[in-house]
Design a protein around this nucleic acid. Sequence first.
DNA 1: ACCTGAACACCGTTCAAGT
DNA 2: ACCTGAACACCGTTCAAGT
Lengths: 180, 180
Amino acid sequence: MALTRSEVVRTATRILREYGLGDLTMRRLARELGVQPGALYWHVTDKQDLLVAVTEALLAALPAPPTGPATTQATVRTGEELLAALLPVPDAADVVRVALAWRPEAVTALAAFEELAPAQVGPDVMARRHWARGALDLVLGAVSDHQELLRVAQARSEPDPLPGEARARVAAALQRWARD
Amino acid sequence: MALTRSEVVRTATRILREYGLGDLTMRRLARELGVQPGALYWHVTDKQDLLVAVTEALLAALPAPPTGPATTQATVRTGEELLAALLPVPDAADVVRVALAWRPEAVTALAAFEELAPAQVGPDVMARRHWARGALDLVLGAVSDHQELLRVAQARSEPDPLPGEARARVAAALQRWARD
DNA sequence: ACCTGAACACCGTTCAAGT
DNA sequence: ACCTGAACACCGTTCAAGT
């Protein structure tokens, strides 16, 4: 049976989840799919396209953004859900940043945060977009930092930092960022 | 005359400035220095070590952090200076993020921001550290985003986005982030 | 339509051997 | 002390040719 794009993306996402971005190479991906490297380029235009698709896969698991009023609490919840989706995936923040540079509209979390911009930000589209990007940057920074702590702790065979710490930190950051 | 580490770092920084991170390879760097690739490893332990040193070089140009009280204005000024140092350097944010993951104490901007944490953050060391990291994430996000806009504008041969826009954006973000 | 085989033009890093 | 030469083990991407 022929390979499909979604199978390629699924396997890529699995490699990322299990081994991180350093192991997510086109050649390794091809090997796991039992196919020659060149075959991937029938389903994917290049590696960036693949990483954007992987980002979409990571974000697809997120619940729909809250539809109510743009409260601080709603922002915090959205950020915590994003964090929960990304934290267990090694190098997830870097992958999302590639998508952000290459196809920002694929990063649905951005649109979600835009809806949640507090009143004080005003109606200006750019101001709201920048506010959303700031919220995302704060979450991605927390993800990178926490995964780095984890890397160091494991190298020293110390106990892992708890995900709850990253969660509390994101909550605090978004509370500060969202308050009117 | 023998090569020195600082010559290696200087040339690496120049390549980054002129051509970006994609062209900053050990082989290319060796070529520009008129030396074999292996020679670099006498002066630098690996590429990450090099990128940390390049980050230090980029940040060395920054003025000393303001010594006065931790006002919002001082935070904004610090952020604007950091932005001014990084904005003209392609992929500067990615390079700083590597240093941040690998040797955070080399990112002096982090210590600078820590001093500037507003009173409301409190005396807790971790809280202040996270606040500083948030400030840095906001600036780095603005750098990445602006350089990305620039890339797109140049690809479409549209006029470049003005650095002043990035500056205004960083000011707004840090005002929001720093207010007590 | 979808994939193979094979190549092209690269990478970072190591290390015996030279000076 | 510092560097060369040469290798090792990889990369992403392209493309004629096959089925």
